[in-house]
Write a protein that binds this DNA or RNA. Structure first.
Length: 467
RNA sequence: GGCGAGGUAGCAAAGUGGUAAUGCACUGGUCUGCAAAACCGGUAUGCGCGGGUUCAAUUCCCGCCCUCGCCUCCA
């Protein structure tokens, strides 16, 4: 695959080719979850988009180094662990396990490295010390440490917020009344280290500025330095992280190292529910479990999440899950029609070259899916020769692998676990049909349907299918 | 107020300076006793509104309306 993925870059606002700085491995970082509860499908939209990005890069022949953090210390994890009567570690490990289970169900490739913030306190402290020594940070009277935004002239270049514009909006009033803010030199300065407070419980660490804990923005910078270095290929996260989180990361990292930090920024738009924002604070969210309880599978959820371009908001509805189910069935049936008994070798897109090209152009998944169906419709799988169908199936599997889609079982397949009573009714109906007693046959079929079973007739006999 | 994204068929969602992919839903036909499945078709003279540029705009430019997000923890 000579072609390379092109991705929109938030910083330069241009589409740029994604190629490794070291010429070998694409090294990228994704902001991971804060583990204080189950992640919702909006969170997963971002992780799934990043997963597709990684899969496409790998399918195009470039190995990756994927780093994604676990935020296991912040206001919420501390608050909720105390509420649950658990240690912070115990509490966050439980939710981390849940997160991993959901990721596996959604067919997300595990990051190569998944560092936790708590496990990297010394790294964060070291970075703060550097920033203070550089004059980019200062310790306040209460033992907190802040980054001096005015010391970094490029601050705001990612979010395109001018210094004087920062916090001039609705937040100004709120910030000014927060007692914390009085210890800062400027309203725009942000915390690198938060001095210990009574509500932190046992969750504090020693430092030369006193006991406390790292600020949220710092962990990513510190762990990126540790695992990816001063310069790396790509950084990704949800759009809401552009400001202030990623802006702060850039400031912290560029002021404490000589590198340029991320060379490419990928931001994933939000998932909407019925036209509105979905978030923990509003409470209109679905977790993966909410949907599986309603009978939907994780693949179906994944399909919905990738069915809109990652850079545009996607509206989630239950109907979209039904739609995804049917689309996946269509793919599974096409795959079956192409199956002539040889195992697929998904090494090249084959007849799906157009879909692959579409995917390489800023990860246009919906465009690629459309192209896959279009190609399938045109090829008519059932009519292909053995060689053609093998080639087509290889290509289909190549595309599915790049998209991370695993085909579901075909729903209309004959059921194997038909209860004896149902089987007997079905037999009776077949007999009635053979006798051309249509009325009786239809009555029996309706009876079976009411019990949740469908009959499919063929010339030689019938099959019973779960409804 | 500042920054950003978006308005395309019933729903969802691509795309293009030359007259609209695809999935779902709906629908006609073949098949079937009738169905189901499968297969073959159909379904936006139209791409928020109004101007402009052009031989030609949904696609470029200008103005306007509306929706959503960020500016505070947030994927």
């Amino acid at each position: 695959m000579p072609a390379h993925l092109t991705l929109h870059d938030t910083l330069t606002r241009t589409d740029r080719e994604v190629t490794p700085l070291d010429g070998k491995t694409l090294r990228f970082y994704c902001c991971g979850p804060t583990v204080y509860g189950p992640a919702h499908i909006g969170n997963f939209r971002t992780f799934v988009a990043q997963d597709v990005m990684r899969r496409v890069v790998e399918a195009s022949g470039t190995p990756t180094l994927h780093v994604r953090n676990i935020t296991d210390v912040d206001d919420k994890t501390i608050r909720d662990s105390l509420k649950a009567g658990q240690s912070l570690l115990e509490f966050t490990q439980g939710w981390t396990a849940k997160f991993h289970a959901d990721c596996d169900a959604l067919n997300l490739l595990r990051p190569h490295t998944e560092p936790s913030a708590v496990a990297h306190i010394p790294h964060q402290i070291a970075m703060i010390e550097k920033l203070i020594a550089n004059g980019h940070a200062y310790a306040a009277a209460d033992g907190s440490v802040y980054f001096r935004v005015s010391s970094y002239k490029d601050y705001g270049k990612l979010s395109h917020l001018e210094d004087r514009e920062l916090r001039l909006g609705a937040s100004e009033a709120a910030s000014a009344t927060d007692s914390d803010e009085y210890t800062k030199d400027s309203l725009t300065d942000f915390a690198l280290w938060k001095a210990r407070k009574p509500e932190d419980g046992a969750n504090f660490w020693p430092s030369s500025w006193g006991e406390g804990r790292p600020g949220w923005h710092l962990e990513c910078s510190a762990m990126i330095l540790e695992y990816l270095g001063e310069d790396f290929d790509l950084h990704s996260g949800g759009v809401d992280l552009i400001f202030p989180h990623h802006e702060n990361e850039i400031a912290q990292s560029c002021c404490s190292t000589h590198g340029k930090f991320a060379h490419h920024w990928m931001h994933v738009a939000h998932l909407m529910v019925d036209g509105g924002k979905m978030s923990k604070s509003i409470g209109n969210l679905y977790t993966l479990e909410d949907l599986t309880k309603r009978g939907y599978s994780a693949v179906e959820v994944r399909y919905v999440l990738i069915s809109g371009h990652y850079s545009t908001p996607l509206n989630f509805t239950m109907h979209s899950l039904d739609s995804a189910r049917q689309a996946l069935q269509k793919l599974a049936k096409a795959d079956k029609a192409l199956d002539r008994g040889t195992a697929p070798i998904p090494a090249a897109p084959g007849p799906f070259a157009e879909a692959w090209d579409t995917l390489l152009k800023d990860l246009n998944v919906p465009g690629a899916l459309g192209s896959i169906f279009g190609t399938l419709n045109k090829l008519k799988p059932a009519a292909l020769s053995a060689d053609e169908s093998a080639n087509t199936r290889n290509g289909l599997h190549f595309m599915l692998q790049a998209l991370g889609i695993t085909l579901p079982a075909i729903m209309d397949e004959a059921a194997t676990d038909v209860p004896a009573a149902i089987q007997s009714l079905a037999q009776q109906r077949w007999a009635a049909k053979q006798a051309k007693d249509w009325a009786a046959a239809d009555t029996l079929r309706k009876q079976l349907e009411a019990s949740g079973w469908l009959i499919k007739d063929s010339k030689e006999g019938f099959t019973v299918v779960a409804k």
